[in-house]
Design a protein around this nucleic acid. Sequence first.
DNA 1: AAACATGGTTTCCAATGGATACTGAGGAGA
DNA 2: TCTCCTCAGTATCCATTGGAAACCATGTTT
Lengths: 123, 123
Amino acid sequence: MRYAYNVYEDRCPTRLVLDRLADKWALLILDRLEDGPVRFNHLRRDIKAISQKVLSQTLKKLERDGLVTRTVYPTVPVTVEYALTPLGRALAETAAALTHWAEHNMDAILAAQAAYDAAVMER
Amino acid sequence: MRYAYNVYEDRCPTRLVLDRLADKWALLILDRLEDGPVRFNHLRRDIKAISQKVLSQTLKKLERDGLVTRTVYPTVPVTVEYALTPLGRALAETAAALTHWAEHNMDAILAAQAAYDAAVMER
DNA sequence: AAACATGGTTTCCAATGGATACTGAGGAGA
DNA sequence: TCTCCTCAGTATCCATTGGAAACCATGTTT
């Protein structure tokens, strides 16, 4: 065994982390922050169809995990900027591989789904 | 734009794929299948705390997406083997990066959580 | 005075997730 | 023979989660 942790084990803390990272919205947020800090409502507009509640909740969890920072500027109205920490940046690169894989291999997956559904229909 | 798809867009099919891949259990299954075919109950035992229902459902979705194959051997009792397709293998390598990142960076995340919780307490 | 911006919280309902029990065919052990 | 065990799943129920929409405070613009 190379690491002290084993994600196959129940009750291993890595399971908690995997739970966090295996989240569509968290991956999209991390990906979106790679180019630099972004404000709350800007994220909301960029990541289509995310709700305010889920965005807020997800950002809080990412902040707690030390993956993003939250900075408040006392402007009027208040400005809140979210940015990646070094740890978050490392993860974002890994996460980007997943989202980009999805974009890249979409056609193959759609074809597989169509074939599967056709096979189920004629069964 | 490099690809025809954009995961930030609502209603883009990549969102469906991301939804599928951003799933703790799917990632663990793909990871577990990297070393070769595995039977249903073997997966169930290896991936601690997964329920039969969720394992069954997740495998079906992965099969529909063309990421795993399901092969039935008419033994007694019946043997069902799950294996990665070439497409699934490519994804498993990407997914492995995530699970291994979780194992690797666990200590930093636990420390961040403790610091965050302490800050919240004294606030 | 009404509308819009900021960054959220609250509320409600539908969908999802997990725990548990059950199936059913066949083999092994008592 | 009777009971238990294995295989690979379904079926059922309840708690948690997710998303839609309304609401909040503060301040600027029209």
